[in-house]
């Protein structure tokens, strides 16, 4: 080591062992030392405990407790060592300007603008063609990346699988008889063959027990009453706000509530939104009863179901 230049030793700071900056931060280092030792021993035992815990069972609380004690003990010990037992300082370091000298900056700008400028300006056609080619590549490279991801929307958002005479079935595929629901009862139904399908989900509610031949349930708005049958009414279960299933039916108030953002729809008034962020009524499915007493749709939904989107007229 002594063969190195002596001025290095001179240039770099040398401190005496009793320099106040090198003294530990703690007033009583031996006490902190004892705490750190204890902490690390506890940490060590914690890790051993984790190993044993893992071996004999994988009870999650014991695992966390042993691992937590291990990590915390070790960490606390090391941190105490660093904070209280190492040289207290404070030490200082000079900052240097981030920017280069003016001459260096000029040289950099010149390298870009003058050297580059001459070459590019003289060959404008080449430069333009390269920009054109690279730009085109950028655009066409995005084609497979984006276009192959999925199908175009097309008419998919406008239609559901509900058609004229679709048989209402439960999730298990069981057709719904007029006698199936009591007044106040609800059931999620699908068109037969599409059980569990998201856009087709429809909520069937029995509002009243109306005998055949009697006047239909007086559903507001006018003209919709013959969309009900025997006191049954059916609405799309997809919230017109963000598409959550409108799954909460409050029988006393005859309201459907969306649990996501608390839109409330009035079931006896064509499911108009009475409260909350939903902008439109839930689309209504016109119902009828077939000869066997099963519920069927008179037609599909007369408008797109679910939340709003740009193409919706």
């Amino acid at each position: 080591m002594s063969d190195e230049s002596p001025q290095l030793t001179g240039a770099l700071p040398v401190a005496a062992l009793d320099d106040p900056h090198l003294q530990p931060y703690a007033a009583h280092p031996e006490r902190v030392n004892a705490v750190a030792v204890l902490s690390m021993v506890v940490g060590f035992l914690g890790f051993i405990g984790f190993g044993i815990t893992f071996w004999i069972s994988d009870q999650v609380q014991w695992e966390a407790a042993t691992l937590g004690v291990g990590l915390f003990g070790l960490g606390f010990g090391v941190a105490a060592w660093g904070k209280y037992l190492m040289p207290q300082g404070p030490f200082v370091e000079e900052r240097h300007d981030f920017h280069s000298t003016e001459a260096e900056r000029d040289a950099m700008s010149a390298a870009v603008l003058e050297r580059g400028g001459i070459v590019v300006k003289r060959r404008k056609v080449l430069g333009g063609l390269f920009a054109l080619g690279a730009g085109t590549f950028g655009v066409v490279a995005a084609f497979p990346l984006i276009r192959s991801l999925g199908p175009k929307p097309g008419r998919a958002l406008f239609t559901t699988n509900w058609k004229k005479d679709s048989l209402l079935v439960s999730l298990e595929g069981r057709p719904v008889k007029v006698s199936d629901l009591d007044v106040g009862g609800v059931l999620t139904v699908f068109p037969k063959g599409f059980e569990g399908s998201s856009p087709d989900q429809t909520i069937l509610i029995r509002l009243a027990d109306i005998a055949p031949g009697e006047p239909p349930f007086p559903l507001a708005p006018p003209g919709r009453s013959d969309w009900t049958v025997r006191g049954y009414v059916a609405y799309s279960k997809m919230c017109t706000h963000l598409g959550c299933p409108v799954g909460l039916y409050q029988e006393q108030t005859q309201q459907l509530v969306c649990p996501c953002h608390q839109s409330i729809f009035n079931v006896v008034a064509g499911a108009i939104p009475e409260f909350g962020p939903a902008p439109r009524p839930l689309p209504q499915l016109p119902l009828k009863v077939d000869a066997q007493g099963f519920l069927r749709s008179q037609a599909g939904y007369d408008q797109p179901v679910g939340p709003g989107f740009w193409e919706r007229p």
Partner: peptide, 10 residues
């Protein structure tokens, strides 16, 4: 504060 002493007179 002082610069970090690289060498310490042990």
């Amino acid at each position: 504060p002082i610069p970090v002493p690289t060498f310490i007179n042990l």
